[in-house]
Amino acid sequence: MDQRFTELLRPFLKFTPGGAAGEPVAITPETDLRALGIDSMQAIELLFAIEDAFAISLPDEELNDTTFATAGSLWNAVAAQLTAPTGPVAP
């Protein structure tokens, strides 16, 4: 996963043990986003943040609970747009 992506994700994971005050914890592809605080409203805010940061637009069919389940599944959806033949959309 891109470091820009994990850094962007971090502030959304409000329940990351020790994440707020202590050492930054590792975000792995298996990191469970829902368990760590990303509810349906946070998912929308995270989506906007990702689309702004990477200048991409995630397709509607990717915007489901499965995509937002783990850091890895969300990154896969992001990465697919970064490498899409048409390239990133203009910011």
Binding site: M41, L47, L63, N64
Partner: peptide, 14 residues
């Protein structure tokens, strides 16, 4: 409220 959030995920309205 849930539906408003869900609607935002589907800008093509499928």
């Amino acid at each position: 409220l849930a539906d408003g959030r869900l609607a935002l995920r589907d800008q093509g309205v499928h």
